[in-house]
């Protein structure tokens, strides 16, 4: 059976699993919580920085659909998205090994590499879909509660405003970059999943690695290792709001993350095609 056919089966299975939808519900919950906070609570936490710009008149409100999509991203990229995605990516092999279904599948004339490719493709699609879902959910909820408007973005070095068209463009870029980072995390989880027959292990290992790399990146002594840590690129998505966008830097970051992704897949393939299925 072709990778494509297997992918169809994987999608069919994945969609019927509860854990697939934990991510969507989790993200929706976060979006709703933030939106309600902005609607009924004190928005000054977000908007206060605007008013620190003296001698400016503010017309309308920066809180809108685009703004919501902008603020929920950093709230989810560092923990929730990687977690939800590891839940699925880290389960691809280990989960089936734990359930014994991997054994059942591989008694069939199924090429192991094709199966792994199908599952990895599924992980990629899931990352894309979940990230896109976050964006679409934020835009939809934001649109319903606040309407659509230009995007105000608070960065570490100041405030940026983008008109609607530009704002959507920047958000798309940012979500794309976030997805690439999350995909790198998912690839790590996927790799670990080929090594374990307990689907909690990949999630645990991945989260631990994220924290460890994050800490290493903070220690000056390990400065030289920084370009090789995937967590170094966890904030890449924020650079989509730079003015002007530093495309070479983005390309470099994306390239580094994709190297991670490809490397993880290759190692997974080496492991999985040789592995004894003993579960």
């Amino acid at each position: 059976m072709s990778t494509f056919g297997l992918f169809g089966i994987e999608i069919f299975k994945q969609f019927r699993r509860l854990r697939t939808h934990i991510g969507t519900f989790g993200l929706l919950g976060i979006v709703l919580a933030v939106a309600i906070g902005l609607k009924y609570g004190d928005a000054s936490h977000f908007v206060g920085r605007l008013t620190r710009q003296p001698n400016f008149q503010i017309y309308g409100s920066p809180v809108n659909a685009l703004f919501l999509a902008r603020v929920v991203l950093p709230m989810t990229v560092f923990l929730f998205l990687p977690l939800f995605v590891s839940l699925v990516a880290g389960d691809q092999i280990s989960g089936e090994a734990a359930d014994g279904t991997l054994r059942t599948v591989l008694t069939r004339p199924v090429n192991r590499f094709a199966l792994l490719s199908a599952k990895f493709t599924l992980a990629i699609v899931y990352v894309g879909a979940l990230t896109a879902f976050l964006g679409v959910a934020a835009l939809t909820v934001g649109w319903a509660l606040f309407g659509v408007g230009g995007l105000v973005s608070f960065g570490w070095d100041g405030v940026s405003y983008f008109g609607i068209a530009e704002g959507v463009h920047r958000l798309t870029l940012s979500y794309g970059l976030a997805a690439v980072y999350v995909l790198a995390v998912a690839s790590v989880a996927f790799l670990v999943s080929t090594l374990s027959s307990n689907s909690l292990v990949p999630i645990g290992v991945t989260m631990a690695l994220m924290v460890m790399c994050g800490v290493l990146g903070q220690i000056p002594y390990f400065e030289s290792a920084k370009p090789y840590l995937f967590t170094t690129y966890s904030e890449l998505f924020l650079r989509a709001f730079d003015v002007p966008v530093d495309y070479p830097a983005l390309r470099h970051g994306v390239f580094a993350l994709l190297v991670y992704v490809v490397a993880c897949f290759c190692v997974s393939a080496l492991i999985f095609t040789r592995k004894d299925i003993l579960s």
């Binding site: 056919g5 297997l6 014994g100 279904t101 059942t104 599948v105 069939r108």
Partner: peptide
């Protein structure tokens, strides 16, 4: 394995699918 049907140890299935869906799915793999 093209023309082989097999069952190893306690058969494991996708518990979130029906019996028929499982049989169909594994048949597709064959």
């Amino acid at each position: 394995l093209k023309r082989v049907g097999a069952m190893v140890e306690i058969p494991a299935f996708y518990s979130y699918l029906t019996g028929r869906q499982n049989v169909r799915l594994f048949a597709r793999l064959s």
